[in-house]
């Protein structure tokens, strides 16, 4: 309990620093908020264009698809807000030796590296993504109960943990390949699959890999289905297991990588 409270204090200190910094560079904050908003808009326009030519895609109508894509974006915005900058910089810091700075801090290196920065623009745009989900649910006439909303929130949190794990694994490659420039693309590529409904995967190997082995599909489909169809035990169990596995795997890969870290100072 004491440890948890200490880590919470560390996180609050980092968050406070990030917020002060964000308010100092307001122009930068505005641009990045706009960037995220534009990317959300790109997805919405794509859905609009596709559904102007068809009523259903893999059995999902336009607003159901918007809930799926909105959920996927919501998870990604939370990742961007809470963890992205720290993990992204980790790759660069491993290469130039600045990771020493993380190791010298009073806490677990993965925690210290991944929670260093809170990005306000990601947080702002998580409201935009959430609004898309709420708007689409209203258009579908959905009235989820408090339990469904709580379960949806818990599943979104699981999704953030899975995204966190995938990104940590990708960026930990820097411990082996030194230059991790562009490696973050593997995370974005993997998460592109999370904007697709599971029913669209009906071709052998692809379905096995992206639905069953990698967590790309379950991460967004599970929470979206809670809003659309209520609690489904199989999806909840699947998401829970994927969350535990991917978090454990990311910690393992990070620690294995950390053993290879030799600093870079002269």
């Amino acid at each position: 309990m004491e440890t948890l409270s200490r880590y919470l204090r560390i996180w609050f200190a980092s968050a406070r620093y990030s917020l002060v910094r964000a308010t100092m560079f307001r122009g930068d904050l505005f641009i990045w908020a706009l960037v995220e908003f534009f990317w959300i808009s790109v997805n919405v326009v794509m859905i609009g264009v596709i559904y102007s030519h068809t009523a259903l895609v893999a059995g999902w109508n336009m607003y159901e698809m918007m809930i799926l894509v909105g959920t996927s974006m919501l998870i990604q915005r939370f990742l961007m807000a809470f963890f992205w900058s720290g993990i992204f910089e980790m790759g660069r810091n491993v290469r130039n030796g600045l990771f020493d700075f993380i190791l010298a801090q009073p806490g677990d290196p993965l925690f210290m590296a991944s929670t260093r920065k809170l990005e306000l623009d990601g947080l702002i745009n998580s409201f935009v993504a959430a609004s898309l989900v709420v708007y689409s649910a209203a258009k579908l006439g959905l009235r989820p109960g408090v339990g469904d909303i709580a379960l949806y929130a818990a599943m979104v949190a699981c999704g953030v943990v899975i995204h966190f794990g995938a990104l940590v694994i990708a960026m930990s490659l820097a411990f082996w390949i030194t230059s991790s420039q562009g490696v973050e693309g593997s995370y974005f590529t993997l998460m592109e699959f999370s904007r697709l409904p599971k029913e669209a995967f009906h071709r052998g190997l692809v379905s096995v890999v992206f639905v069953w082995i990698l967590p790309a599909v379950v991460v967004s489909n599970a929470p979206a289905r809670v809003l659309l169809h209520g609690f489904q035990a199989s999806w909840a169990a699947w998401l829970g297991a994927a969350t535990l596995c991917w978090f454990a795997l990311s910690v393992l890969v990070f620690r294995l990588g950390l053993r290879r870290y030799t600093s870079a100072s002269s």
Binding site: T54, L190, L196, P197, V206
Partner: peptide, 14 residues
């Protein structure tokens, strides 16, 4: 290649 797989699945469903 993976991006193309996404395109294939999405537009295949469309």
């Amino acid at each position: 290649f993976f991006h193309l797989v996404v395109v294939f699945i999405l537009w295949g469903a469309v």
